[in-house]
Structures are given as C-alpha cells and as structure tokens.
Design a protein around this nucleic acid. Structure first.
Length: 457
DNA sequence: AATGATTTCAACCGCATATCT
DNA sequence: AAGATATGCGGTTGAAATCAT
C-alpha cells in the first residue's frame, strides 16, 4: 500500500492555512462539495495536497463545528469513553457533536490526562496509579478489561465534577491558575505535552483487544439500562444523557458490524434505539459521518443545536457507492432581522442548521453539484449576520458568492463593533444551549482569528 | 519590559484499510 | 487476484500563545 502520492510532490504548501486558502477551500466545497479530496486542491486552486484540504475542512472549516471550551459533561463523557475505547478518538468524537477527534485528542493530552494523574488515576488504564505501578510493566494492559476500567470511571468523574463545581471558569482559565499549575508540576517532572505523547499508547496493538462482548456488557449496563429504567443519580456517568447508539459507526464499525451487528444496529440497519427519549429529544442525534459505514445508516444530522422532541429528521442518506459532501438548501423562512437584536433572536429561536438542510449523502456528484450550488443561492443569505458568518463558514462562503466585497465588509465591520461592545467575548446565545452541552461557544480567540481571516475582504 | 519555560493546538506524518482498476 | 490509489485514523511535531520570573 503506497504512501499518499502528495507526499512526493514538491511545490505544495505546508503549515498553517492562510485566510485566502480557507476562503478558496470554503468556496469550492460550498459550491461543489469535496468529491474526491485528491482533486479538491487543483479544482479549488490551492497549492495543497488533498489530505491537507480534508483535514482543514474537517477540523476547522466544517460548518457544524462547535469551537470553544469543552463543557463538564463533554469532559466527563470523554473520560468515560476513553476508559472503554482507549485512544479511539474518532469514535469518542462521534459521541460529541461538533467536536473533532483532533480536538478531543488534544484536550486529552493537554488536560484530561493531567487531571486524572492529579487524582491518582492512570490515564491509560483508568486504574489507580499505585495499582498500575505495582504491576510494573503492565502499563498498557489489554483494553478488554472493561469492567475494571469502568469501575474506576465513576470515581474519576466524581472527582472531576467536584473539582469543577465552579465551572463558570473556563477550562483554559483553570489551567492557567496557580493552584492547578502547581498541581500539574507535582504530577511529574518533564510531563510536558511532548513527553506525554511518548506515553501515548499503542492503540494499534491494543485496538483489537477490546472485545465486543465487553463493550456490550459495559454499555448495556451503564447506559442503556440506566436510561431505560429512568434511573437518575447525582451526576453519575450514566446521567450524562448521551445516546450511545452510534458509538461504533465510525472507522472501527467494521469490528462491530462484522462481529456483533445486533448490538449496535437493528436488522434494519437503523441505530439501536437504546432510549427513544434521548435519541429524539434534547440531544443532537447525529454527527457528520466520517466513513461509508456510517452512511448506510439513515440518520438526521443536526449538529450543535438543541431541538424540540418533535422535530423531524433533517436529512436522510440514500445509499450509493461514491462519497461526497453536499450542502443542501436553506429553507425559505428566515428568522433573522437586522442589527444585533435580530442576531440574538435568530440565535435563540433558530439556527443555521434548523433552516438548512444538510446532507452528508451519497450519490452522483455531477447531479448534486448543480443542486448544491443553486440551493445555496437562497435569498435569505443576505439576512445572515456576522455571528453566523463566524459560526458557519458555509454561510460566509455563500454570502461571498452573492455579495460584493465591500458590502460584506461593511456588514462584518458593523457586527464586529457590536461584538467588541460585548465584553464577555462569548455569544449571547450560549446560555441558550447549555443543555446538554455548554458548547457552541466562540471564544475571543476565535473571533480574533476569524476577523483576521475574513475581515480583510 | 524582557526573557525563558510551559502549554496549546493546528497540521503533518505514516500506517491501515477501503475502494478502484 | 493484485496492484494502485484514496481515505481515515492516531501519533507526533513545532509555532504561537501564555505564563512565570
């Protein structure tokens, strides 16, 4: 199996993406979808390899990304999932709408590992450090010891929850606090992020050791049954309110579908509905798919939004043989109005995704390109405001196609002024979205970056 | 204010696997 | 069936940001 051809090509740009490159990629994908990634850079006029474009899209430009700090619930879920899945970041990310595997991986390596160590818990095994040390070399035991791992998770989460009772403070703020800094110093000399990574793992060696049976027992016990019985307790892991039905639809779905298909999917290829309440109500029920295995499962994709339980699914996924991303048509209704008050209203009552049909679908590229292009030319784009531009680059791209640079600049500028008067640096609507996640935050850094990136237009 | 240390995170690399020819 | 190519994933790196002195 060969290395990706791009690796041999010279002249290709590497490193950080410039705003212009972002814009090109955004325009291209907005218009045509990504199709074959290897052809994207050429078609988009980028001196990048397809791989780089794909990564940029997935980790940064994708319109459904949340950005901002992780909520306590998200952190808890990551820890819990890591205890079961190990470093399978893509699968963990699949349970966290709007979060990328890279983001989660970074969070784990830079923060969560430290927190666990501080607690005396080995972040690799999720067992007490003393126990791990006693076992000598057994630093990376088989991951199928799920019950042992699971038993430790509750303690980890209890600690972390207590530690974060003053959760108004952002994670990053906490990291910078002297107290936490001291704690981190204590946990080990030379424990910077680089050396930690050497400890990272041998996921590839371990990955197959996570037996389906253990997974099944674990999840059925910890999630399905607890939810179905409506059991609640004080912030126990099983109260995290996340459906687990899609846990394995990502890259390693092969393992699941090949070995225990009945566990994760019904015989109609629908996700196992462990708890209908959760699958249809307060949680965005689906994530952008990353593999074709996902695409065989018809699911709604509605990221980063809390929706009423009676909301219909927004998209379905016809089955075909080629993969592409398609931006669908905005609906005709628009809740937005002009000015900052209009922005607030829009964010509160609606969202881009509630007005927009997204399909991570399959089918014939040629037919959908035109459709996607036409669909994106909806008339209400001009009503979209700066926060939407920031939060949904797709809107920005669509607007870029329709608006003169000057008019867009003026609009952006006026909204930026509004933002600068809002000293919190957070979007007002964040409070509207704290359940189940406290995400969709765009921090000041994001604003700064995007302003730098697109304010020049 | 300057400088060094530390942390964060975007992006790259290489490998495994899927898909195509 | 086999080789070539494309995609996805996790580990790692290093520039930039932030903190401590």
């Amino acid at each position: 199996m060969g290395r990706h051809s791009c690796c041999y090509k010279q002249k290709l740009r590497k490193g950080l993406w410039s705003p212009e490159e972002d814009e090109k990629l955004l325009r291209h994908i907005t218009k045509y979808g990504h199709g074959c990634w290897s052809s994207v850079p050429k078609q988009a006029g980028l001196q990048r390899c397809g791989k780089s474009c794909r990564l940029r899209w997935i980790n940064y430009l994708r319109p459904d990304l949340k950005r901002g700090t992780f909520s306590q619930q998200e952190e808890n879920l990551i820890i819990e999932l890591h205890a079961v899945l190990g470093n399978r970041w893509s699968q963990i990310a699949a349970q966290l709408p709007g979060r990328t595997d890279n983001e989660i991986k970074n969070l784990w390596n830079s923060c969560l590992k430290k927190k666990l160590r501080q607690r005396g818990i080995d972040p690799v095994t999720h067992k007490p450090l003393s126990e791990v040390e006693n076992n000598g070399e057994d630093k990376n035991p088989p991951a199928n010891n799920v019950q042992d791992k699971a038993s430790g998770v509750s303690n980890e989460l209890n600690f972390l929850q207590a530690n974060n009772s003053n959760r108004g403070q952002s994670l990053q703020e906490k990291k910078r606090s002297p107290a936490s800094a001291q704690a981190y110093q204590l946990e080990g000399q030379g424990s910077n992020s680089k050396t930690m990574s050497s400890n990272a793992n041998n996921h590839r060696n371990n990955s197959n050791l996570l037996t389906p049976v253990s997974n099944k027992d674990f999840f059925l016990e910890r999630f399905a049954t607890s939810h179905q019985e409506g059991s609640t307790s004080n912030c126990q892991p099983s109260d995290l309110h996340f459906p687990l039905q899609q846990l394995n639809y990502a890259s390693n779905a092969r393992l699941i579908t090949n070995s225990i298909p009945s566990l994760w999917f019904t015989n109609t290829s629908k996700p196992l509905d462990m708890n209908s309440e959760f699958s249809s109500s307060s949680i965005p029920s689906i994530l952008p798919p990353t593999t074709s295995s996902f695409l065989s499962t018809p699911l709604a994709f509605k990221p980063s939004v809390t929706v009423p339980s009676d909301d219909p699914p927004l998209a379905s996924f016809p089955i075909s043989s080629s993969r592409y991303w398609e931006a669908g048509a905005p609906s005709n209704n628009s809740n937005s109005s002009t000015g900052s008050s209009g922005y607030t209203e829009l964010q509160t009552n609606s969202s881009f995704f509630e007005n927009t049909l997204f399909s991570w679908g399959l089918g014939d590229c040629s037919s959908t390109e035109k459709e996607g292009q036409n669909q994106l030319m909806g008339s209400q784009q001009e009503d979209v405001k700066w926060p939407e531009y920031l939060h949904n680059p797709l809107i920005m791209a669509a607007a870029l196609q329709n608006q003169s640079p000057q008019s867009l600049y003026n609009e952006i500028k006026s909204e930026t002024q509004f933002l600068s008067e809002n000293s919190s640096g957070m979007w007002p609507h964040n409070q509207q979205q704290q359940e189940p996640f406290q995400t969709s935050n765009i921090c000041a850094k994001d604003i700064q970056r995007l302003t730098a990136a697109y304010g020049h237009i």
